[in-house]
C-alpha cells in the first residue's frame, strides 16, 4: 500500500528547546495510527506541523505528495482536523457551521447541501440541526466537529486528544462515527492519553517521548491494553 504521509528527518525547535528530534515516519493510506506519549513529548507539535499550522525547523513532510512548506494550501484541502477544540461557532447553528466550512473548502452548493444533510444524519444531530451550537452539550459539539472535519471528504483525518471532556456515552458515539469512516479508507492519525479507548480503535501504535519515536508496532503485536500500559510505562520512564 502506498504511503500517504512521509516524514523524513523532521526536527522542530522552539528557541533552544528541541521538541522533535530527527523523526522518520511513513503512514500508509487507510491506516489508523495512534500516537501516545507524556505531556511535552512533542505529539501536538508533530500534529500541528502535519496540519501546516507550524513550520518544521528541519526535515520534510509530504502529505499525499505535497510538501508542507511549499504547498500548505494543497495539504489543507486534503486533511480534516478534530481536536479537543471543536472549531465551531457558538452563535451559528449546526447547519450554518457546516455550510460555512464547506464554502471555505470551495464546495459547490448542491454538493454542500447533500453533504450537510448526510453528515448531520451520520453524527445523529438531525433533531438539533437548526439550533445554535452554543446550546449543545460537549458530546454533541464533538460529534458536530467530526462532521465539520469531514465536510470536504478529506482522505486524511488528524485527531488531537478527541476524547477530552467526553463522557462514556459521548466517547462511544464518537467512536461509532469514526468507525463509519473505515469504508471510505480514510487515513487517521490520532494523539491520545486515553489508552483504554484509543488502543482498540487503531491499526498501529506509536509512543513519542522527548521528541523521539521510541515505539512503533502494529496493534496485533502489542497485546492487551494492560500489556501496552506496562510497555508504555517502561518506555516513558527510560
Amino acid at each position: 500500500m502506498e504511503n500517504i504521509v512521509s516524514i523524513k528527518s523532521l526536527s522542530k525547535a522552539f528557541g533552544s528547546h528541541r521538541v522533535l528530534k530527527n523523526i522518520d515516519l511513513d503512514i500508509k493510506k487507510g491506516e489508523f495510527i495512534t500516537i501516545f506519549g507524556p505531556n511535552g513529548a512533542g505529539k501536538t507539535t508533530l500534529m500541528r506541523i502535519m496540519s501546516t499550522l507550524v513550520e518544521p525547523s528541519a526535515g520534510s513532510i509530504s502529505i499525499d505528495g505535497f510538501d508542507v512548506k511549499d504547498e500548505p494550501v494543497e495539504i489543507r484541502k486534503r486533511i480534516g482536523s478534530i481536536s479537543h477544540e471543536t472549531y465551531l461557532y457558538n452563535e451559528l447553528t449546526a447547519e450554518e457551521n457546516l455550510r460555512f466550512f464547506g464554502r471555505m473548502y470551495g464546495m459547490d452548493k448542491n454538493h454542500l447541501d447533500a453533504r450537510v444533510d448526510e453528515l448531520i444524519e451520520q453524527v445523529g444531530l438531525e433533531y438539533r440541526s437548526n439550533d445554535r451550537v452554543g446550546t449543545f452539550s460537549r458530546g454533541m459539539k464533538q460529534r458536530l466537529s467530526i462532521a465539520r472535519a469531514l465536510i470536504h471528504e478529506p482522505p486524511i483525518l488528524f485527531l488531537d486528544e478527541p476524547y477530552t471532556g467526553l463522557d462514556q456515552h459521548a466517547a462511544s458515539t464518537f467512536e461509532h462515527v469514526l468507525r463509519g469512516l473505515d469504508a471510505q479508507n480514510t487515513t487517521k492519525v490520532m494523539i491520545s492519553h486515553n489508552i483504554d479507548r484509543s488502543l482498540k480503535m487503531c491499526d498501529r501504535v506509536l509512543i513519542l517521548n522527548n521528541g523521539n519515536i521510541v515505539f512503533d508496532k502494529f496493534r496485533h503485536e502489542v497485546g492487551s491494553v494492560d500489556d501496552f500500559k506496562n510497555t508504555y510505562e517502561s518506555f516513558i520512564h527510560e
Binding site: S51, T52, L53, R76, I79, S81, S83, E85, T86, Y87, L88, Y89, N90, F101, M104, K141, R148
Partner: peptide, 9 residues
C-alpha cells in the same frame, strides 16, 4: 472553541 485555528486550517 479554537475557531481561529479552524479558519487557519
Amino acid at each position: 472553541n479554537g475557531c481561529l485555528e479552524g479558519l487557519k486550517l
